[in-house]
Each structure stands twice: as structure tokens, then as C-alpha cells.
């Protein structure tokens, strides 16, 4: 027990004094592109930070096989704004405006993988806003979900919920 505590304290002091902890962190995307970021950015990404902590800050190149070089800059941009305390409604609106449905989903998965709570919450809301008031078919396509109801089951369910099915938006398909 005492040994454990002392070794923990040891690791703490190492990471504090280790010069590499202030050096930039290299994030390597799934398609092998390297993005150099400040350690403060890495702190926003819990998965990356815990990786750094586990290796006492000795390893500063972190492979992120699940994230593409297309998505990673968006994640970094969001983290930068978050640190600067500049996440405004306007920024968020601009941020998602340029993203199509597939990209939003990819970023959402990236935020989950990197464990960035704020980005995950924000994108959850973005996806919710994009599917709210859409048809069941649209939602199935959006998420790639297979309908596992029998036609009879579905018809019965729809009949019971018939009163909710008025005023659904027409499906506007994503160009991609």
C-alpha cells in the first residue's frame, strides 16, 4: 500500500518536471497525417491526456487510428475555441454549417473516442436538431438502421401512434 502511494507520488513529480510535458503533442490520424498541437489542446481530449499521463509524458506522439485527417482539424479547432472560452452560439452555428450529415456523425464518433464531453454534448444536440420532425424512414437512413419490425408490427404501431404522425417535414436528403 505504502509502496503504491510513493510510486504514484513519484510519477506525479516526474510529469511535473518532465520537460517534454510542455513540448507539442503529435496526433497521428488514421490516414497517417501528423497534427502538432499544444499540450493544452491535448488536455481537452481526455483519451489523449490519459495516454500521456500513463506514459509519464514520455510519449508525445499519439496514434488516433479511428480519426481521419479530414475530421481531426475540426476537433482541434473546437478544442482551441473551448480553451479560449470563445464557444459562442455564432461560432457553433458557423462550425456545423459547413458539415454535412456524414461529417457530423464522424465528428460525433471522434468526440466520443477522444472523450471530449463538450463537443459530444454539442454534436448530440446538432444531430437531434437534424432529425427532429423528420420521418421514420429518414431517421433509419440517417443512422443506417435496419427495420426489424414485421410489416404487421410496424403497421400496428403506426396506427397506435397515428396522432403523432401529422406535420412531419419532407425528407431533404443530404447531397452526400
Amino acid at each position: 500500500m505504502a509502496e503504491e502511494v510513493s510510486s504514484q507520488m513519484n510519477s506525479l513529480s516526474i510529469s511535473e518536471t518532465n520537460p517534454s510535458s510542455s513540448a507539442t503533442i503529435s496526433l497521428v490520424s488514421g490516414d497517417d497525417i501528423v497534427f502538432k498541437v499544444e499540450p493544452t489542446i491535448a488536455k481537452e481530449m481526455e483519451t489523449v491526456q490519459s495516454f500521456i499521463d500513463e506514459t509519464d509524458g514520455k510519449i508525445t506522439t499519439i496514434p488516433l487510428p479511428n480519426i481521419s485527417s479530414h475530421d481531426l482539424p475540426y476537433v482541434i479547432e473546437y478544442c482551441e475555441k473551448s480553451i479560449a472560452g470563445k464557444i459562442t452560439k455564432e461560432f457553433e452555428a458557423e462550425f456545423v454549417k459547413k458539415l454535412n450529415n456524414e461529417e457530423v456523425k464522424e465528428l460525433f464518433l471522434a468526440a466520443n473516442y477522444l472523450n471530449i464531453k463538450k463537443l459530444l454534448d454539442f454534436l448530440s444536440q446538432v444531430i437531434a436538431d437534424r432529425i427532429a420532425n423528420k420521418s421514420v424512414e429518414y431517421v433509419r437512413r440517417y443512422f443506417g438502421i435496419e427495420n426489424d419490425f414485421t410489416p404487421e408490427e410496424e403497421a400496428k404501431l403506426r396506427e397506435e401512434l397515428a396522432w403523432t404522425f401529422t406535420g412531419v417535414d419532407p425528407d431533404d436528403e443530404d447531397e452526400n
Binding site: 456523425k105 464518433l109 459530444l120 448530440s124 427532429a132 427495420n147
Partner: peptide
């Protein structure tokens, strides 16, 4: 990179943010 499919626990993050009416309709999704 294959088309992303969201795992169930992430669906659970999104759905509570929807209006009740949409949720009732989306019981028909699967």
C-alpha cells in the same frame, strides 16, 4: 473509412434531446 454507424450508447446521448412527438414517432424506427 466505412460509413459510420453509431453504437447504441451514443444513440442514447442523442435521443433525449428530441421533442416528445418525434420520440413517439421514432418508436417505429426499430
Amino acid at each position: 473509412i466505412p460509413l459510420p454507424v453509431l453504437p447504441e450508447e451514443l444513440i442514447g446521448e442523442i435521443l433525449p434531446r428530441l421533442p416528445v412527438r418525434s420520440l413517439l414517432q421514432f418508436k417505429c424506427v426499430c
